[in-house]
């Protein structure tokens, strides 16, 4: 990263959609009896995300809530996650999460992958602030951990 010139990318970081999700978070709360629950914690900054997910009889997401505290990016990303991931099976959740990670790593995505993460492109501006990428990924890391734990414990899949 070149720190010597004014990159003036605050507008990319704090896009309206992101601040909207931060200030009016969607699906915030904790489910009492979730199938999947997982906590993401960033010891570097203290940001915290708790995901709780209820699945329907077909194994698709019926309800996803997030709770937590932290910066606008971590909380907005979590809020957007809950909106995007409704009515999806676990494999779809994983594909979306991996595609989002790939975008945040700056990899070029196929049009199929792009359509999977439709709406999340607003978070791409975070890439200009390397230290904040972890904030954007916090909820997604929690999601992946939660799916992993559910797969091993409930579905008895090999880790």
């Amino acid at each position: 990263m070149d720190y010597s010139f004014d990159i003036n990318s605050l507008d990319d970081l704090y896009q309206e959609v992101i601040l909207d999700h931060y200030q009016r978070p969607r699906n915030k709360g904790v489910l009492t009896n979730p199938d999947i629950s997982s906590k993401g914690f960033n010891p570097f900054c203290g940001d915290e995300i708790i995901l709780s997910i209820k699945l329907d009889s077909k194994g698709k997401t019926k309800c996803i809530l997030f709770d937590g505290q932290g910066c606008s990016i971590s909380q907005a990303s979590a809020s957007m996650l809950t909106e995007l991931l409704s009515n999806k099976n676990l494999d779809e959740l994983k594909s979306i999460s991996y595609s989002f990670r790939a975008m945040m790593r700056g990899e070029s995505l196929s049009s199929g992958e792009m359509s999977l993460i439709e709406g999340l492109e607003v978070l791409e501006g975070v890439r200009k602030f390397p230290i904040r990428i972890k904030c954007a990924l916090l909820a997604w890391a929690a999601l992946e951990d939660g799916i992993e734990e559910y797969s091993v414990k409930v579905l008895k899949k090999e880790p």
Binding site: D6, L13, C45, G70, C71, S72, I73, I131, R132, C135
Partner: peptide, 18 residues
């Protein structure tokens, strides 16, 4: 949030801890 303050201040050349 402090983390956002840190980033915005950084863009002004101001180093603080969050």
């Amino acid at each position: 949030h402090p983390h956002d303050l840190g980033t915005i201040l950084d863009q002004e050349g101001i180093a603080i801890r969050t």
